[in-house]
Amino acid sequence: MSRTILISGGSRGLGAELVTGFRAQGCNVASFSRSKTAFIEAMEGSADFHWQAIDGRDHEAVHGFVNDTASRFGRVDVLVNNTGIATDSVLPLMRPDDIIDMVDTNLTAALLLAQSCSRVMLRQASGCIVNISSVNAIRGHEGVAVYSATKAALDGFTRSLARELGPRNIRVNSVAPGYFETDMVKGMEPAQMDRIARRTPLRRLARIEEIAAAVHFLASEQASFITGQTLVVDGGITC
């Protein structure tokens, strides 16, 4: 039977890379994001793909989407909590609304999506959750304090949820990527990217498929005894 993978924020960036990769493995894929991209349009109408325009902060809509996905494909085997936003600003200068928005998008939305999926997984007595964290959860950097807080919280969530759900055969892990090129980092100066590459033992930024590979591994049978862990994929920048 085909596995069903639910990926939040699958319209571009890492989410889109994961949608492509899981479909290539023969999985059913469900995803949502606020806006539709050409990437999503090209897949519309495929029996193995389900996408809806949803703001991840709309918890009722997200809960409905999870239940729809479970009815349509019969199950939810893997959740990839991928949606995330980042802004580069020091805390004293951030607008309170932007702080709240980032916590809602990166953290609260992820917790509630995991809650909805965990209910389906409990009924199946199996499942796997991969939360997308960041190296910023592990090392402090100026300008990303709130982003770091949300990602570190996701890692803590990962560990405790792994304990809660492990006895029900549900694994929970996170992937903490270093920088890779997507829309999220397009505002960074080339000099800043060069500096990151110089500080990275492997002397470059990650390729998006290298981050996706870690997610595929954790979602696979090869990782069947791995839970509660954060897999850092950063070319060694945090070592």
């Binding site: 809960h63 965990s118 009924r123």
Partner: peptide, 21 residues
């Protein structure tokens, strides 16, 4: 509490409501 979580999840699937939301 995890038995209760399973129970609530099964009842939501069967009845279509979750009073605890």
């Amino acid at each position: 509490s995890m038995d209760l979580a399973l129970l609530v999840s099964e009842l939501e699937a069967e009845l279509g409501v979750d009073p605890f939301a």
